[in-house]
Amino acid sequence: MVDGSGLKNTLEREVVKILARETDLLKKGARVMMVSSVDRFGMAEALAEVGCDMTFGDLVFTAGIPYAINTMEELEEIANKLLPEITKMPFHLIYPTGKKQESQDEAKVKKFARYYHNADIIAGDFHLIRRFMPAGMSGQTIFTNTTTSSDIAFLKEKGVGTLVTTTPEYGGRSFGTNVMEAALVAILNKELGQVTEQDYLELLHRLDFRPRIVKLGA
């Protein structure tokens, strides 16, 4: 069974490289706020490597602790210390599930709005991005996946300027990396345990994979 983790570490790194090389969306020094990075370490590391000014909101948006992490070294240190305990918590306490994925935590939206407003790019899991996004965005870029047409309308209403998804759109929806990984593994025709990062990269290149970039007009 695939969960998307194998593809995240390759696909999302590759998308960062494409954006930095071929667009003006990822300039050196761009202020990037990741709502959660331990589940997207490849994306976090790649963004730091291309020279982005990083803010990691793992403690802010999953634990409600108003402490932003600013370096990969500190992120690794805190993750090593806290993850063993956090993973014992009920999942719904650290990640929006069910109807919470379609609603906002208004108290935290107001409390943590500055993290969104001060960033050029907000990256990471879309359900977390959506749950805490304030109004009054000023043309920021969202770097994520698993979005629908209603999500795009939501982003426009909030004032977002550009949406970048790491997975392509099919029928008005960009699917999660778990769905895409399942498709790629089927194409590779290998046992999951035999699939390597290089296999994913070579297949992505053969398919001429490109990130989806949607200008929202803000």
Rank of each mutant, 00 (worst) to 15 (best):
E73W: 14
V195C: 06
A48L: 08
I187D: 05
K110E: 14
V214M: 11
G98M: 02
L82H: 10
K215Q: 12
N145G: 08
T166A: 14
E191H: 10
V179F: 09
N70A: 04
I86L: 08
H92A: 14
V15F: 01
V35P: 07
K27N: 07
V214Y: 14
E49I: 10
G51C: 03
A79P: 01
F143M: 11
T141Y: 03
G124P: 06
F41A: 12
L25M: 10
K28S: 07
H205A: 13
N145M: 11
R173C: 10
D120W: 08
A63N: 02
G159C: 07
K190A: 02
D120F: 08
L47C: 07
I122G: 02
D120R: 03
R13C: 06
F126S: 08
Y95D: 00
A153F: 04
D105N: 13
G171K: 04
T87P: 01
E181Y: 09
L128D: 00
K108S: 04
G171M: 04
N145I: 07
N145P: 02
A20G: 10
D120N: 12
Q198D: 14
Q198S: 05
N118Q: 13
N9I: 04
D24H: 05
Q140H: 02
S103G: 01
T97G: 04
G172D: 07
F154H: 08
Y170R: 04
K17I: 12
K28T: 13
A186N: 13
G176T: 06
L26H: 09
D24N: 13
R21E: 14
M33D: 00
I213S: 00
E106T: 05
Y116W: 14
V160A: 03
V32I: 11
K111H: 03
S103V: 00
S138M: 02
R21L: 03
D3T: 15
